[in-house]
């Protein structure tokens, strides 16, 4: 259980990355989406104890992250995969994982061996485990990063855009791996790939400009867009006027557009079943126009 209250973070130089964020996160998989610069990484780095909030509080499993002691205790139960992952180029996978496991406090050698063996199987790197990490491809590095985060069986797993750079097959495998892991722990996953969330999370938050603008189940977000998702077939110009274009498909009888918004009748739009991505798009559009109505910039 992680309780986040009124978190703000202002970076040196004045960028306000978090602006009064309050969330309760329970067991299972928690998805975090939002546009670039929304503050997802900032939020996750605070949760990981890397960054101190300007104000506000994080209590992770009863440990107050504002105290050195609390951070240390929380870190002992944490697995973290940073958005920009670096590895020691001159170690091989076995050595790197062994090193990280020792630092994480898995002090029993046999236990360490067992965990590393299992994790390498899970991320399918057993065959290349003895190769130096500098010879790994981007996706392989990411998978080592994932394995590293799972060392020591942490109660809280924070993964910042873990699927970027993975091929589709690996992405699906990784999603399933996380879903398996989510049974007995909290996983906080940020991503730009909304599909990742719809497939694996039962709880999600959408962030924008340092605030949570939606919190709930993926189904709720989808429902919000119901009645606002349309297909427009046109042989002329693109539809416009407050519409968000989700996809464009060239057909024999013209171009088929999938749009989110409320198109005027002359487009002869056909209503469509919303997806999570539509829900996200509608939310973005809706909050922007709401903000505009009230005359505040978001």
């Amino acid at each position: 259980m992680i309780e986040i209250t009124n978190l703000t973070k202002t970076y040196r130089g004045g960028v306000k990355a978090l602006n009064g964020l309050t969330l309760d996160i329970g067991m299972g998989m928690f998805g975090l989406v939002g546009p670039n610069g929304a503050g997802k990484t900032t939020f996750m780095r605070i949760l990981a104890g890397l960054l101190r909030p300007t104000t506000g509080q994080v209590i992770a499993f009863g440990h107050d992250m504002n105290t050195a002691h609390g951070r240390m205790a929380a870190k002992a139960n944490l697995g973290y995969l940073p958005q920009e992952l670096g590895l020691y180029p001159n170690l091989n996978a076995l050595e790197f994982l062994d090193y990280m496991a020792i630092l994480k406090g898995v002090t029993d050698g046999g236990e360490r061996k067992r965990q590393i063996h299992d994790l390498l199987e899970k991320v399918r790197l057993t065959d290349v485990a003895k190769r130096r990490l500098k010879t790994y491809s981007g996706g392989m590095k990411r998978r080592i990063g994932i394995a590293q985060a799972l060392l020591g069986n942490p109660r809280l797993l924070i993964v910042d855009e873990p699927t970027s750079g993975l091929d589709p097959e690996e992405r699906v495998r990784f999603r399933n791996l996380l879903a398996d892991m989510a049974l007995e722990r909290t996983i906080i996953l940020s991503t730009h790939i909304v599909e990742d969330i719809s497939q694996s999370c039962n709880d999600l938050a959408v962030m924008r400009a340092g605030q949570v603008i939606f919190r709930g189940a993926p189904g709720d977000l989808i429902e919000r867009a119901r009645g606002h998702v349309w297909t427009i077939t046109s042989s002329g110009e693109r539809p416009n006027g407050g519409l968000t274009l989700v996809s464009t498909l060239q057909m024999a009888n013209g171009v088929q557009y999938r749009v989110v918004g409320d198109p005027p009748p002359e487009y002869r739009a056909v209503p469509n079943e919303p997806s999570l991505e539509d829900g996200y798009m509608w939310l973005m559009q809706d909050t922007v126009s709401a903000a505009e109505r009230e005359g505040i910039g978001v």
């Binding site: 890397l50 240390m72 002992a76 973290y80 940073p82 670096g86 630092l103 590293q148």
Partner: peptide, 8 residues
């Protein structure tokens, strides 16, 4: 170091 500093 980003990783290292999340370790206990």
């Amino acid at each position: 170091n980003e990783l290292l500093h999340t370790l206990p």
